[in-house]
């Protein structure tokens, strides 16, 4: 069982790794002019959701908060990238 200090550091590591993964996906020039464009966009936005979820749950400590506040913030970090993805992919 990790103490909270170790959990914070583990989340930090995740956030850095996910940022590198996201930046790498975006840096592949060919991907944005290929049929993989939609998949790349979905992947980058999915990584954003995972990062935001970690910040909300662990750094903001909303994992232990009343369900209303936890779900409001979690909803924000899921819905906003979904809306952005929808705009980019559909329009």
């Amino acid at each position: 069982m990790l103490n909270h200090h170790a959990v914070i550091l583990r989340v930090y590591l995740y956030l850095i790794l996910l940022t590198i993964a996201s930046a790498y996906m975006g840096s592949i020039d060919d991907i944005w002019s290929s049929e993989w464009q939609g998949l790349a966009l979905t992947g980058i936005l999915a990584l954003t959701v995972i990062k935001g979820w970690q910040i909300v749950d662990v750094y903001m400590e909303l994992k232990q908060a009343p369900a209303l506040w936890r779900n409001l913030l979690r909803g924000y970090i899921v819905l906003l990238p979904l809306i952005i993805g929808f705009i980019y992919l559909v329009f």
Binding site: T19, S22, A23, M25, G26, D29, W32, L41, I44, L45, L47, T48, K51, G52, I55, V56, Y59, M60, E61, I77, L80, P81, I84, Y88
Partner: peptide, 26 residues
Amino acid sequence: FESGACYWHMVDLVWIILFPLLYVID
């Protein structure tokens, strides 16, 4: 202290969304 910390995490959270929007998604 907790209020200040949560405000700072909000600033980070916003940047987490802003970063791919501005720099990554081409």
